[in-house]
Design a protein around this nucleic acid. Structure first.
Lengths: 357, 357
DNA sequence: CTGAAAGCGCTAACAC
DNA sequence: GTGTTAGCGCTTTCAG
């Protein structure tokens, strides 16, 4: 039994470099001693190196020792040697502000995991000091790279420190050339949303856009116009309104909308559509018969469960996270500018086929 | 310049132990050399050790070297020496299934950060193999401890591997004695929800509970009964109904509810209340005049933005995450059984004061 | 096929 | 006050 002897002692019984038992830090060396082989051999076995051929008998002995001792490799030591860890950092400006951020984390985590990486996350709540600390920490932990993400799609500045690592912007972009980024394809999303209505026979389609400037605002409008154009419907500026992009905004826009004499409306987002539902219902109007409604975002708690369930377009947050990781790892080629991720339309009962106009 | 010469070698050309420049891995030693001091000194300066007194002049020299070289400590090496990292692991069974999980992450991350820890997260989506891998990875990275969390409040089994680390259950609990856990106080929440109605003059209060068994189902009912009892209102089993806990469930329960001849209802959750809103509205009933409604969960996208905004009780997910970290770090004393986190009531316009019965 | 040994970057005694 | 030195646990030539 590995009892101690003082370093200079004459009887060099088996060395005991550390406490014999405490809470499982069994080391490679201990395994090696137990198996009667060298640490190199154990390392080879643990890492299943194809190159090195270990006698089957030896391998078994090592494996047994590993099992009986309950050996756990020390990832820190491993990283120290290799110089880079199996971490990917995710800096988010609002993990909780919205259900969306969770999806980015989820996608990033799944994809990272698939490639043997773990996710190190930091929430900065738009506090730039926190952000700096977070990035610094990630750098110190030698992350493979950093995903810098925002909870809503927007342009962003690149924090200086971020440049010390490989990084990819997620759900945001920069005008600096050469920056890798992945963002939702707002234009395509807007097109898809409008097409749901067009496909169901509507020609006069109102669009309630957001009041606040954002890539989404421009993109979703552009998509709307494209879809109309492709369908040979003239764009009528009078059919485009604006409201604050939440339930109250949608509700408040009801009266204006009804003045337009339309039977189909595409809302900037689901929350707006939700408010609009209330506004229409209050006036005894029915969806989709009196008004076909399409939203944007596919916010789960809302869209799928309104009455009637809302047709909308998904904001692909999960995919953004996953694509961010793939881009970082060089699996997805980086697009120039930003990679645009597809926003899949989701058709539900808030739109019903009409007789063609 | 402290150039080396190889121990036996005749030609002592300056040693180049590593690539001279590539992407910033400046080491402590390089700083030491640049500043003309030993690595120990640099270490002392970097870590602001109060004990060791360094000449101000030396300290400056070191700091300058650090700055000009752009030195970044290697956290891995640091961890290797100290034996335990500054990581806290968070294992979650559904990061994205619900907006809630995001809040747990958020709370855990903020609190961990406050104490100098970073969050390592893993999403297991209820896949036990993934879960094992996740825990193993965390163990290998020598996390300080692991938060094991579930997206809805429930009993859970403790994965074997988890026992190798310090851990705290978050939003779940185990019947094993001595297990540390933090969960929402469903009973108090149910009491608070009911009290909102009582306080506003209602005596006959219906409760639409969930059909699916869960601590929340029992707890919220118990709270309801407590509140009634405290108010001297006899419990009437006929006023307790059950429905599937989502929008459709709430909507579908409308007819039943109206048969009860009540003017106040407390719903198991906000989604149910949302469905109930639709059901009531369809029948031309108004909230809160014809029916006062209270929910549970305080799901942001819903509760605050229904018309009228919904009175409800918050599920304290952020607090759960934060409390989990505090418990893990021994800052909060561990309660026996599970620590119950308060669920704060949120009063909104879906309830209005009534004449006393 | 396997062992010895040199570090990875850093901290912590212990000298001087 | 500051330098020397011995590791932390592991990987990786390089011998044999």
């Amino acid at each position: 039994m590995s009892t101690e002897n003082t370093p200079g002692g004459p009887a060099p019984a088996a060395r005991t470099p550390r406490m014999p038992d405490r809470a499982h830090p069994v080391t490679l060396r201990e395994v090696a001693e137990a198996a009667g082989v060298s640490t190199a051999t154990v390392s080879l076995v643990v890492n299943k190196k194809k190159s090195a051929r270990i006698a089957e008998e030896t391998r078994q002995r090592v494996k047994d020792a590993i099992r009986t001792l309950g050996y756990r490799p020390n990832a820190m030591a491993k990283t120290l040697v290799s110089g880079t860890s199996k971490f990917i950092g995710l800096v988010a400006d609002g993990v909780a502000t919205t259900p969306f951020a969770g999806q980015i984390i989820h996608g990033a985590q799944d994809e990272a995991w698939k490639h043997g990486y773990a996710l190190l996350i930091a929430n900065t709540e738009a506090n730039s000091e926190l952000e700096q600390d977070a990035i610094r920490m990630m750098l110190e932990y030698k992350v493979r790279g950093i995903l810098y993400s925002t909870w809503f799609h927007r342009q962003t500045d690149i924090p200086e420190q971020l440049r010390e690592a490989e990084f990819v912007l997620v759900n945001c972009f920069s005008d600096e050339p050469g920056t890798r980024a992945v963002v939702p394809d707002e234009v395509q999303g807007g097109r898809s949303a409008t097409e749901i209505l067009l496909r169901n026979g509507h020609r006069r389609i109102a669009f309630i856009n957001a009041t606040i400037p954002a890539p989404a605002k421009d993109g979703r409008l552009a998509g709307y116009r494209q879809a109309l154009e492709d369908a040979g419907v003239a764009f009528d500026p009078a059919l485009v309104m604006e409201a604050y992009p939440d339930q109250e905004g949608g509700y408040g826009a009801t009266a204006e909308l009804l003045k337009r004499d339309v039977a189909a409306v595409y809302c900037y987002n689901d929350r707006m559509a939700m408010g609009l539902y209330d506004g229409l219902r209050e006036r005894g109007l029915s969806i989709p018969d009196d008004m076909a409604v399409v939203g944007f975002d596919n916010q789960e708690v809302i869209a799928a469960h309104l009455r009637p369930p809302l047709s909308t377009v998904s904001l692909p947050h999960y995919e953004l996270g996953a694509a961010g990781v793939r881009t970082l790892l060089g699996i997805d080629a980086a697009a120039e500018g930003a990679a645009k991720i597809h926003c899949p339309p989701v058709e539900r009962a808030s739109v019903r086929a009409q007789a063609r106009a």
